[in-house]
Simulated scan of single mutants.
Amino acid sequence: MRQQLRPVWQSRKLTRRVKLKIFRSNVKTVLLYGCETWKVTKDISHRLQVVINRCLRRILGVYWPEKISNVDLWERCGETPIDQQIKRRKWNWIGHTLRRDIPRQALDWNPQGKSSCMGVSPHRPPAYGPRGAMLTATLPVLAALAVVSGAKHKPVFSEEIKEIIQHVHNECVAKTGVAEEDITNCENGIFKEDVKLKCYMFCLLEEASLVDDDDAVDYDMLVSLIPEEYSERASKMIFGCKHLDTNDKDKCQRAFDVHKCSYDKDPDFYFLF
């Protein structure tokens, strides 16, 4: 494909705008086809980004020994880093899946003895079918930051979603050994200095696929998941606390500090399941 498109990128008859449209419709759509269900690694992201950057440089007419930073390249072409694009596509797909009235059997089905397309063990509980990792990724974030107007009432979920939320909760409790009482007390502003509780909070972010390979949390993506009518309030709370997520702390302490600060910023808005 690279050889076939080279004459297009080098053409003087086509404007940059047209070239970028061709790139997005014929190159990027092929590269990212089905990425909503991928298990994305650093290596995959890097390989995709290299191909995309090479195409964009050809479109802009940047050849060696000329140089342009990746940030400038993306800005001039109206692009964003490929890992962010994949994450956003994953979340869009989740929302689309949750809005559709798809039979439970179709969502949870997995052939006996086969690994699911998400790379999840077939021996997981029913909530982990082909959509398992993605669907369970959505709910921890929405529940952990459940947006309730004016008072602390748990959001109303369907029985299926309740089941998945409970499963994610149980997963993180099992991994960390945190006491249920310590989780409940957080809603009342009692944040126990306990490593199990701190790592439970980070576990929810991991389950939500909001943490990269370097354990950095994507707060922009986190805020983007909040319903629009509450996004301003959520942004003030989260972005007002994310400065506490610093590299001099371990990952569990960082999550704990942000959670505690979020409660202090807006106690009526904070919820932890």
Rank of each mutant, 00 (worst) to 15 (best):
H46L: 14
N53V: 06
R57V: 03
V156L: 12
T176Y: 07
I59P: 01
Q49D: 14
E193M: 00
K114T: 08
I68E: 02
N170H: 05
C261T: 08
D266W: 10
R2L: 06
K42E: 13
L244R: 03
K162I: 10
K152N: 13
L107W: 08
P103L: 13
V148P: 03
E79A: 04
R88S: 03
V148I: 09
F256I: 04
R24P: 14
V141Q: 12
L204T: 09
I226T: 14
I59W: 00
R6W: 12
Q49N: 09
L135D: 00
I183N: 01
V71S: 12
K198C: 08
V258G: 02
Q112C: 13
D108Y: 03
D257M: 00
V147K: 04
T176L: 06
L14K: 14
S149A: 07
V156T: 10
W91V: 05
T97A: 12
Q166P: 02
T176P: 06
V173N: 03
F202K: 10
L142V: 12
C203Q: 11
I44C: 08
V30S: 15
D250E: 09
Q85T: 11
R54Y: 09
N92R: 02
R2G: 03
I22H: 15
V211Y: 02
G240V: 02
C186A: 00
I82D: 04
K67P: 02
G177T: 09
M201C: 08
K152P: 11
R88Y: 04
C199F: 05
G132V: 08
R17T: 14
E206T: 07
V40W: 06
E232L: 08
